[in-house]
Design a protein around this nucleic acid. Structure first.
Lengths: 257, 257
DNA sequence: TTTTATTGCGTACTTAATACACAATAATAC
DNA sequence: GTATTATTGTGTATTAAGTACGCAATAAAA
């Protein structure tokens, strides 16, 4: 099936498979080069970048739908995903992006088409390991790539608002939930973990106090191995203790930065 | 319009006014007799108690819809309302309650009717001043009343889960947001405020430390007047300082119970 | 006038958060 | 080899926040 027929099918028959009036949008965070990154797509039929998103199948749990959508965009299973807000402004799609879409698709879409109606979007944020994720465009996507959270391109609809709120939520969660596990490779050094926290919170932390606090949580274990990173003392590798980490996820923690 | 024709109209024409596949359910909290209460309805056509809820009008913001729904049930305007979770299990309505409904309404409802389809519900929690709210049943409601949060009746669908999560959210919020304002009368005593916090957190707090901490936030002002409550020293009245309270709402606070 | 339960205010103790010091060390330069 | 350099590992002192508890004041009832 080529792009044109698939697009046609999605527009005119999508409501048969998907729940109308609802969508999902995901803010997918990654960490690379000491920067917090977010995954964005540029659609062939829209005038800006967008959060990865999609629709919910007729008999699908919304959490499963979010997992499915992100599997298609990143190749990853069992992603750390959290619902953070549902966006329900009736005019959230009534921007110039909509007009651009109508011009771009070159199809006679009636106003009562399921995609032209008011859509409420459920916002999720996700944490993924940058190096394991493979940004994957679909047929309707021109580009799919990571962007530094501090240098975002123009986003469509209300997606800038969605990113703002997702980041705020992540920052707040950081104080109760052990978050590094989903964003870092299996083993990592203490300076790397600290940089991650500093990047998300957007403020510097004291190296020695950070180590004390994070080790005090009891979810990390120090390895024998050290990482060679320059003309100076080499830091040890650490990894999350799976069992204690899972416990901390359900019980919650108390940081205090 | 009598009950039967209004019900008929809602079932068969409701989708013209309301967004299908979506609903709103609200956990409305009040405080009375040193108990945390929640507002529940018993529908004429359902076999248990339910959270007050409803549907979103075609061109209505979801937050406005929640306000409208609660205005109808309590008579109150500008209620403190917060979205806390969207419930999207495709089978959340497929319980015995649905069968009971079909028997009770005695109408030939086809399976493709908008109320028979899968509905995703947006959960809000609300805080209201018990004495100012007037529980108001609608045409389809048999009873509408406050229930002690610790002695709830059988609830329909997934409403028990909704209540659980709303309470958990409220408890968590209590640590960052000045919450008493919405649940207490304009002026109140320190023991009353403390009782509210103890009730929500479900644990005792030290009287003297509580006073220190709560006054340290700078959102309360002590009045000259005292309340006469028994054969012992009379407590002062306090009230929220409107300006500082609003500031605290946006800035957030840091408690630590 | 005494009794009673409770309030207002205060002080000691413990724990958590913050600030800062210094020796150890791995790659590089010479 | 040996000195240089930037960074890491570990520790201690200080400050702030949280917890535990004491006691005099007092308003209504006995």
């Amino acid at each position: 099936m080529n792009v044109t027929t698939e697009l046609h099918d999605f527009i005119f028959n999508g409501h048969l498979n998907y729940v109308p009036h609802l969508s999902i949008d995901c803010a997918v965070f990654g960490f690379h080069d000491n920067q917090l990154k977010i995954l964005l797509l540029r659609s062939k039929y829209l005038d800006g970048w967008a959060l990865p998103g999609g629709h919910i199948q007729r008999n699908e749990h919304i959490d499963i739908a979010a997992q499915r959508i992100l599997k298609e965009r990143t190749g990853l299973d069992k992603i750390f995903l959290k619902q953070y807000q549902t966006f329900g402004d009736p005019d959230r799609l009534k921007t110039q992006s909509s007009q651009y879409f109508l011009n771009a698709v070159q199809l006679p879409i009636p106003p009562n088409n399921w995609l032209m109606e008011r859509i409420v979007s459920i916002g999720y944020y996700a944490l993924v390991e940058f190096s394991k994720a493979t940004p994957t465009p679909d047929l309707f996507t021109e580009e799919c790539d990571w962007w530094d959270i501090h240098q975002l391109p123009a986003l469509i609809f209300d997606h800038d608002h969605m990113v703002d709120l997702a980041l705020q939520t992540l920052q707040a969660q950081l104080h109760y939930q052990p978050i590094g596990y989903n964003l870092l490779p299996d083993k990592f050094t203490m300076p790397e973990l600290q940089k991650l926290y500093e990047t998300i919170l957007d403020k510097p932390l004291d190296r020695r106090n950070f180590q004390k606090k994070i080790m005090g949580l009891g979810i990390l274990e120090k390895l024998e191995e050290r990482k060679s990173v320059g003309p100076h003392k080499s830091p040890y590798y650490y990894r999350f203790n799976e069992k204690n980490y899972q416990e901390a996820l359900t019980e919650g923690l108390s940081f205090g930065f």
